[in-house]
Design a protein around this nucleic acid. Sequence first.
DNA 1: AACCTTGCCGGCAACCTTGCCGGAACATAA
DNA 2: TTATGTTCCGGCAAGGTTGCCGGCAAGGTT
Lengths: 343, 343
Amino acid sequence: MANHMDNPATIKDIAKRLNISLSTVSRALRNAPDVSEETRQAVMSLSQELNYQPNRLALSLRQNQTHTIGVIIPNLDYVLSQMVRGIDEVALEAGYTVMVCQSNESFGREILNTQRLLESLADGFIISVSSETKSFEHFKKIQDRNLPVVVFDRITPHLSAPSVRLDNQAGGFMATEHLIEQGYKKIAVLAGPENLGISNSRLEGYKQALKKHKIKLDQDLILHCDFNQDYAYYATLELLSMKKKPDAIFTISDRMAIGAMLAIKKKGLQMPTDIGLVGFNNEPVTGLVTPAISSVEMPCFEIGKAAAKLFIETMHNKESATTIEKILHPKLIVRESSLKFSA
Amino acid sequence: MANHMDNPATIKDIAKRLNISLSTVSRALRNAPDVSEETRQAVMSLSQELNYQPNRLALSLRQNQTHTIGVIIPNLDYVLSQMVRGIDEVALEAGYTVMVCQSNESFGREILNTQRLLESLADGFIISVSSETKSFEHFKKIQDRNLPVVVFDRITPHLSAPSVRLDNQAGGFMATEHLIEQGYKKIAVLAGPENLGISNSRLEGYKQALKKHKIKLDQDLILHCDFNQDYAYYATLELLSMKKKPDAIFTISDRMAIGAMLAIKKKGLQMPTDIGLVGFNNEPVTGLVTPAISSVEMPCFEIGKAAAKLFIETMHNKESATTIEKILHPKLIVRESSLKFSA
DNA sequence: AACCTTGCCGGCAACCTTGCCGGAACATAA
DNA sequence: TTATGTTCCGGCAAGGTTGCCGGCAAGGTT
C-alpha cells in the first residue's frame, strides 16, 4: 500500500492502479466524453480515496494561465485596505487568487512589483498607481503581452485601460459648495502632488463650485503638498500665516485634514467658527476627533468589487473596449468642523 | 525575423537559433560547468537580445517549489497592515512572492484560504489565526505536507510551529501598573473573546499587576466581548452602570478603547479625573482624539519582518526546531486619558 | 599502441496535465 | 457482404525547464 500523505497523488498514480491510460483518467476526471460510465466511476472513487488534487502548476503550464491576479497598490491605508477586501471578495468567488504588492508610493518599487508579477505569470493586473509615478513604460509592458489590465482609484490617462473610480470632481464640488453654503468666503485647498489625477479632479470640483457661486479663484489658496499628515500640517500653518488668510480649508484626504486640524489648533483657532474644514475619504477617525471633521465618503469596498468584476469581464472577452469607465458616487458626511450655522 | 514581443522567448528558441541543444543553453544560462566560454557568450548575448525570461511555471514544476509564501490573516486593520508590510519587505528581498488572504475573522473562510493556497502550491505559510478559530485541522494539513509554517501575532498553542509575537503579558502588566500608579483603585478590563490567546495574555498581565500591588481581583470587572468598537461601547455602558463601578478601564485593543471612550462621554464622565483609560496597539487615532488615549505600542512592522525572516530560516533548514519563539517588547505610551496626577 | 583524463555537448526522462489523432471492437444499415 | 457509424481507449506530443548519463574528440600518460 502506497503512502498517500506526502507526494500528493497524480493522475499517473490513478492510471497505474486502475491499469488504464493517463488520457482516460484525465477525461474521466474532467467529465469529458469518450469514457464509459464504469471506468468513470472507478476513477472518481479512487481519486477521492487518494485525495487527488490536480497540480495547478502543470495545469497552468499546459493551459497558459495561472488563475492569478496581480494587484499593485501604493500602500495599505484605510481606503486601499477596504478596496483590496472588495477585490479579494470577488476574485475568490470567481476562482482567482490575488497577489497583492505594495509599491510604498515608490516608482522603483512599482516597477519591481510589476516585473515580479509578470515573471510569476499573473493572468492580468488590477492597478492603483503610485503617487510618485510619472512614466508608465512598466505598465505598457503588461499590455504588450496582451494581458488585461484594470486601473482603479488612482487612475491615469496615460494608461488606456478600463477603469473604476470615484467621481472625484463631484466629491470636490460637494465639499466646496457645502463650505460656501455655510457662509465661508475664502476657501483654501490642500491638494496632493501636482501629477496626481485623483487630486486634480477634486481640485477641479473645487474650482467648479467657486465658479458656480461666482467666487473669484485665488491661486494663493491652492497648495500642493505630499499626500501626508505632516506636510499638511506645515502647509496649513503657512496658510494661516498669510495676510489674507482663508476662513475654510478643503483637504483632498482625511490624513491631510488631520494635519490641518492639528495646525488649526496649534494656531489657537476654533472650528467651525474661525475656520471650516472638510476632508475626503470619510475615514473612521474623522468622526472621532474633536471637532468631528466633515468628509466626503467614498464607497471603497464597492470600488474594489467593481474593479475585480470589471477585470473578470475584460478577461473573458479579451477584445473588450478599453474605454469602459465605471464611476461611483461620493456622499458628503457633514460633521461639526464645517457647520458654521449651527455653531 | 521572429516576432519576440508576444509568446516570450524560451530556451528552445535560443537553442534553435544557435543550433545547439537545449541542455547546453540551460547550462550556459545557469553558469553551470561543461560549457565553453564561446558558446556561453553566444547564449548570453542572444538571450539578452530576445529578452529571455525563464518560465517560472516550468521551473516550479521541475523543482517542486514556487517561491511563494501564503499569508493568512484575519483582516487588514492598522496593526495587520503594518505587519504585512514587514513581511512583504523581507520576502521581496529574499526573492519570494507573497499571497495574502484575509479570513475576515471567519473560520470557514480561513479553511478555504488554506485550501486555495495549498492548491496554489505555496512553499509555506505565515499565519495569524482568526479569532473565530477553535479547531486547527486545516493547518495540520499544511504540516502533513511537510511545508514550513510560521505563526505570528495571534498565535495558538494548538499549532506547534515557530512563532513571532509581542510580549502581551508585559503589555497588559505595564498598562495596568501605570493605572495603579496613577492612583486608580478599581480597574476594569475589556478583554476579547475567551479563546483568543492574545487577549488572555494581556489579561494575565493585568492580573499580575494587581497581584504585585496587592489589589484583590474582582471578576465582575473583567468583561469579555467581541474585538470591536460597538461591543466595547455597550460593554462599557454596562460597566459604568454597576453599583461599584470602576474608576479605570484597560482595553486590550484601541478599537475597544474608542468604544469605551464614546461610552464614557455618553455617561458624562471625564477622563482622566472620573475615569482612566488605557488602550492597546497605539494606533494613530489614539493620539488624535480628545482626550488623547494612552496605549501600549507594539512594533508591528518589526513583528512582520521577524515573521518573514523566521519563515525563511525555517525554510532553509527544514528540520529546525518548532519551538523557536521570537518575542518582541511593547512600550507604554502615556497620554491624557490616564494621567490623573497632572490633570 | 593502448589507455585514461578532460572538456564539451546532445539525448532522454522527468515534473503533471491535456488535446489530438488513430485504432480496436462492436453494432447497424445498405 | 461491405460500408458506415458508435463507443471507448491508448499513444504521442506539447508546455518549459533541468538532471543524469553517455558519447565524442583532443590531448596526455604509460
